[in-house]
């Protein structure tokens, strides 16, 4: 991609996310109705509008890591490795958003900061797996080697995710459940759903912007290395 096209795409994504997020937050915080059972914890329950979309985006990002890792192993095109690292970083950021908003929401609603329910636990382990992925990258200097090792971790890590989720779900069904009021997605008011989708669209374009700029950084780095090699040759 040329710089011009990069710039245009970044501008589009940036504008779209700004508009969508501002309007989405306005709608969610000031317009959308309060869920009946959550009335007593009014402002806090609206965290849900950030929490749920962030979780989706984190999963989506890790899926991109998985696909890009496979693509790298098959084609050996470093562009896929750049895509993988960009998506992994974006995924980890949104994972942190999920892990921070989760307890903030849980404390007033459930009375506890953390519950070891399957979804939250899986997200935490997911976070640890991809921090490991980024650490591997950080501690391997040579680029093709780094790309290979990271791709292997990215693939195994993603295959592990549904298994972690399954293990946690089966495990928790055998243990006393924390007081969960009906589960978070049961019987969502259509206006609340609209709010979630609105913010989701905003965060998705924002994640796209981050991904694009991070990928571009890798392109610039590669170009710099190429120029440094040329200087070394001369």
């Amino acid at each position: 991609m040329t710089d011009r096209r990069f710039d245009r795409l970044a501008f589009l994504l940036g504008t779209a996310s700004l508009v969508l997020l501002l309007s989405g937050f306005y709608y969610c915080f000031l317009v959308a109705p309060v869920e009946a059972t959550m009335a007593k914890v009014e402002p806090v329950q609206r965290i849900f509008y950030i929490h749920l979309p962030s979780a989706f985006i984190a999963f989506l990002a890790f899926f991109i890591v998985f696909v890009a890792s496979l693509a790298y192993l098959i084609t050996r095109e470093l562009h896929f490795d750049w895509l993988a690292v960009s998506a992994a970083e974006v995924g980890v950021v949104f994972c942190i958003a999920v892990l921070v908003t989760g307890p903030l929401w849980a404390k007033p609603v459930w009375g506890i900061w953390w519950t070891w329910d399957a979804r939250l636990t899986t997200t935490l382990i997911l976070f640890l797996i991809y921090v490991g992925y980024l650490l591997v990258r950080h501690y391997v200097a040579e680029e093709s080697r780094r790309a290979l090792l990271a791709a292997v971790v990215g693939i195994i890590g993603f295959v592990d995710v549904p298994i972690v989720y399954m293990a946690n779900r089966w495990w928790r069904t055998q243990h006393p459940q924390p007081v969960i009021a009906g589960g978070e997605s049961s019987g969502l008011d259509p206006r609340m759903l609209l709010g979630v989708l609105w913010v989701f669209a905003g965060l998705l374009t924002f994640a796209g912007l981050l991904l694009l700029q991070r990928y571009r950084l890798e392109c610039v780095r590669a170009e710099l290395t190429r120029l440094a090699r040329r200087t070394a040759r001369a």
């Binding site: 200097a141 040579e142 290395t225 090699r229 040759r233």
Partner: peptide, 10 residues
């Protein structure tokens, strides 16, 4: 063959 910026074989 390159190792980062180092050109081992040219």
């Amino acid at each position: 063959k390159y190792f980062g910026r180092f050109v081992a074989l040219d």
